[in-house]
């Protein structure tokens, strides 16, 4: 028994037929084919399935696909357009070596990006607080917080120079 649903993901509309118990995670990862949304625990604890729903991070593993029809879903791969250019936050992750195995990286980037919009003056401690539900087993977090801090600096600088031009 499957239900027809329409999901808006990274600006594109997808028509899917899913069981009602299909999680948004499985629909994105398996049905639409987005490798940047990952199963890590199914409990909402680890953060590897983090996606943005109307620009707020949520657990894709704790949302059923049938529930996600009226929101705009963004995943890490929707952060940049088809051009190969990385988002400045991704560049900060690169420069600081803020990824090792890389499995937690999409969740880290998306969660930090939303915080940057909300509060680019966040302190190191506030960044840590925001990332508390995105577990990392490789890096020890230091480099991740370094990367996010540097990006926040860039956002603040751009805001103060009234920029937007790059």
């Amino acid at each position: 028994m499957k239900t027809q649903i329409f999901l808006t993901v990274n600006g594109e509309q997808h028509e899917l037929w899913v069981r009602n118990d299909r999680t948004l995670l499985d629909a994105l990862h398996d049905d639409i084919g987005l490798p940047d949304v990952r199963y890590g625990c199914g409990e909402g604890v680890c953060g590897t399935c983090t996606v943005l729903a109307d620009n707020e991070p949520i657990n894709a593993c704790l949302t059923f696909a049938v529930q996600a029809q009226d929101v705009a879903i963004q995943t890490l791969s929707g952060l940049t357009n088809a051009s190969e250019e990385l988002h400045p936050l991704q560049k900060c992750f690169l420069e600081h070596g803020a990824a090792q195995c890389g499995f937690c990286t999409p969740g880290m980037v998306l969660t930090s990006k939303v915080l940057a919009q909300r509060n680019p003056s966040a302190t190191r401690q506030e960044i840590r607080y925001e990332l508390v539900g995105n577990l990392c087993r490789c890096t020890g977090y230091t480099k991740i917080v370094d990367a996010v801090e540097e990006y926040f600096g860039q956002v603040r600088e751009q805001a103060s120079t009234g920029g937007g031009d790059r």
Partner: peptide, 20 residues
């Protein structure tokens, strides 16, 4: 920054569960 870092920050690296 090596090839694997770039793929990882883009989220495009295909882990073991990503193949269909």
């Amino acid at each position: 920054a090596h090839h694997d870092f770039i793929e990882k920050v883009k989220g495009s690296l295909l882990y073991a569960a990503d193949w269909r």
